[in-house]
Simulated assay, not measured.
Amino acid sequence: MGLIYLSRRVCLLRRKIFPRIIFGLLFIYIYCEYLIYYVSQVQCVWPKLEKKHAKDVEPVYALVIADIHMLGSRNGHWLDKWRREWQMHRAFQTAMTLHRPELVFVLGDLFDEGKWCSQNEFNEYVERFHNLFATPEGTTMYTVVGNHDIGFHYMITPHLAKRFEDKLNAPPVSLVSVRGNHFVLINSMAMEGDGCTLCSRAVAEINRISDVLKCSSGSALCKGKAKVPKYSRPILMQHYPLYRESDSICTEPDAAPLPLRNNLFEERWDCLSKESTEYLIESLLPRVVFGAHTHHSCLVRHSFVPRPDHKIEFIEYTVPSFSWRNRLDPKYYLLTVTPGEVRVAKCELPQESTIQVTAVILLLILAAYVRWCWRRKSFRHMSDKKV
């Protein structure tokens, strides 16, 4: 009788409870690997313009990410590589689905080992990047080179610089203009100021863009004839932050932690040099600057006075890393841009600990539910048996 009773309980488990266990585990997997990214990001929306600008022009909607650091064959375990890339892929594709930006800017360090890898490895890198960060129709992506992509200035070779430029369509300096909004994309490592071929090419292009913008604004300093259809002060996109002594001026909750925040920056290594910063500001007169490189957030309000009668004011944002390898709480920015206004929203991705805790809680709920179902079915079976 005992064996018969046990056999009936096993059959009961297979017929009634086992499918519910499978369904519960499937739901937990889908929620923690897919839906949780929607739950976290649906709370982040495009920043709204001030009412006086809202109906004047059609804004440009842009998404900014930085410091992806896709692993290569040298660093990291294959499981860590797969896991991090899967997380970034799901988070990015969720952002594309929810926000549908017109522009996407990636501010450098796409590849963790770009400065070391062979040509075949680099080609595989680029293919993986395009697969992981595919953009929908109607969205254009622009990439800015970082030091991990081609190396710091001292180790850059013409081959390293050219292959990134060719494969990612990322020249040392470029101007992107959309409906009167102008974005200047800059290779930070080309701002060394030592007259190298890469630096000379970048400076020549910056001077050309500077003259185009001056002519477009009606400045008396205009030397050429080229203009953009509608002038507005440009937005700079680069990998390095502008010159600053340290992150001690950064007060955001996701700024560099103490005591790291007080570490002094080394010019041309942690940020642009003071000379290159002054050159960019005086040449381009930016209204907003976006950088990255530190993996932490920072907001700086600059008031640059090159002459007593001339003051250049603008805001600089340092974009945190988009990778869970670099920080526990990756972020990205949403920009609503018009010629007269730039509004910024910072979007948070779920922390890995949040995903893990959520999975544990759901598993416990599932276990409690299965136990309740087992006892309930067993009680009914015993009641029927007595009758």
Rank of each mutant, 00 (worst) to 15 (best):
V144C: 04
P234W: 03
L299Y: 07
Y243M: 08
D194V: 00
Q356P: 00
I186H: 00
L280Y: 00
N263T: 14
E127W: 09
L264P: 06
Y125M: 13
V289K: 06
L362K: 00
L185H: 05
A202T: 08
F314W: 06
I209Q: 06
N169L: 11
P136L: 06
Y142S: 05
H69D: 11
E124T: 12
N207F: 01
S383G: 00
L63W: 09
L221D: 14
V305F: 01
F379G: 04
I361K: 05
E352Y: 13
R380P: 02
R380A: 14
L264W: 00
E275S: 14
E192N: 07
V228A: 05
L334C: 05
Y37W: 11
V360L: 14
V176G: 02
D80V: 13
M155G: 09
V337M: 06
L71P: 00
E352M: 12
H239G: 08
I150G: 06
Y279I: 05
I355Y: 00
V289S: 12
K274V: 09
K385M: 02
S7V: 10
F314S: 01
K223W: 01
V57M: 07
N131E: 15
V370Q: 07
H182Y: 04
V42F: 09
V145H: 01
K274W: 07
W86I: 03
K51W: 00
H310K: 13
V60K: 03
R325Y: 13
Y29I: 12
P234K: 12
Y31K: 03
R9A: 10
S323K: 01
V10I: 15
N75M: 09
V300A: 02
Q351G: 15
V360A: 13
T197S: 13
R128P: 02
Y154V: 09
L3A: 11
F304W: 15
K162P: 00
P172R: 11
K115Q: 14
I281T: 08
Q356I: 10
S323T: 15
G195S: 08
R9V: 12
Y231C: 06
W372C: 13
A220W: 10
W116T: 10
T358A: 15
I4K: 12
P286S: 05
E33D: 11
F290L: 13
Y31W: 08
I4N: 06
W82P: 03
E192R: 14
F133A: 05
A66I: 08
A345D: 04
D194C: 01
C44R: 03
D254W: 11
Y243A: 13
F129M: 13
F105C: 06
D309W: 02
H239N: 08
P330F: 06
R179H: 09
E267R: 03
F129T: 05
T318D: 01
L362H: 00
I21P: 03
P101M: 06
R375W: 01
M382C: 09
